[in-house]
């Protein structure tokens, strides 16, 4: 049983976590080509080396990022998602996006 070091809860058995796929950048859904969109939603990069992955600690409903070497299966480091995602993402003018 592998151990994953959760930034909120510390080292825990990996069975406590849910894998969320590789951290990838979404292309602009209103500007990209169909092929680019299909590549984003359907294809895996399958990189050999250190990649960023989404992991979710189920008991605390906590998403974070792990950097893992896909060749050695070593988790190099883990950190809160906020380290990568700092700004509010907008998809359109605030008037169209309601609420604020």
């Amino acid at each position: 049983m592998k151990i994953l070091n959760c930034p909120l809860n510390g080292p825990r058995n990996i069975s406590e976590f849910v894998y969320g796929g590789e951290v990838t950048e979404m292309p602009d859904p209103n500007a990209c080509s169909d092929a680019e969109w299909a590549d984003y939603v359907l294809m895996e990069n399958n990189t050999a080396g250190v990649i960023r992955e989404w992991w979710y600690h189920a008991a605390t409903a906590y998403w974070f990022v792990a950097e893992r070497n896909t060749v050695t299966d070593e988790v190099v480091r883990t950190y809160p998602a906020g380290a990568l995602f700092k700004e509010r993402v907008a998809f359109g003018p605030p008037t169209e996006e309601g609420g604020r």
Binding site: V18, G20, W54, Y56, A58, A61, W63, A81, G82, F85, K86, E87, R88, V89, R100
Partner: peptide
Amino acid sequence: VDGVYRTMLWHNAQWRLD
């Protein structure tokens, strides 16, 4: 619900909506 909740949190971990 577990999947829906997880998906919502995953999106907002990136969107940073209040």
